[in-house]
Nucleic acid binder design. Structure first.
Lengths: 87, 87
DNA sequence: TATATTTGTTTATTATAACATACATTATGC
DNA sequence: GCATAATGTATGTTATAATAAACAAATATA
């Protein structure tokens, strides 16, 4: 049964994705770890493609989803309110 | 930051999904475990929504993907060859 | 009903994910 | 250049995922 994508590759891609999101939101490993209430080591391990738990994956995924929503929310608010006088 | 879907719920849904796939392919926990080279206890824990590792999730997911492909392959082969004489 | 299979659960053990901390190396800013 | 921050690694410890085995309860099968 040919496996086009290996488990190892998937974990590596998950790690890269985390790093990309972290860069996008300008967060250091330590900041992300603090925001999630987990250790920097866990982030480090995840980003380098090592094995982790579902909890870790979902904490990270949810967090970036939330950041995305928050960012979009603020952006659309700003867009609606540009060119509107503050007085 | 409102979390519409909790991590707990996601793990529970993952567990239900595994059970559904297993029923679909008529596999017992033991059979699935054997095919994946992991213990039945790990399957049991995963299906009951407990925390697991990425490896476990991906092993299970890949396996059912493969079974799906295999099933579809055999099905389409059979469809192409029905009504064709064996002689 | 009786038997066999499957599943949920427990116990003891092993492997390893996660933590805390420190330190060296590598960017980044002044 | 230097100083600061960020990252990669290492060490020792703790928590827990995973294993192996056994057993009872629930389900399916004869």
């Amino acid at each position: 049964m040919l496996e086009l994508v290996t488990i190892k590759q998937t974990k590596e891609e998950l790690g890269k994705w985390c790093k990309l999101q972290r860069d996008r939101f300008e967060l250091s490993q330590q900041e992300l770890a603090d925001q999630l209430g987990i250790s920097r080591y866990t982030i480090q391990k995840f980003e380098s493609g090592r094995n982790s738990t579902i909890d870790t994956v979902l904490k990270i995924a949810h967090h970036f989803e939330d950041l995305e929503k928050f960012y979009n929310g603020v952006k659309s608010y700003n867009e609606q309110n540009t060119n509107r006088s503050l007085y």
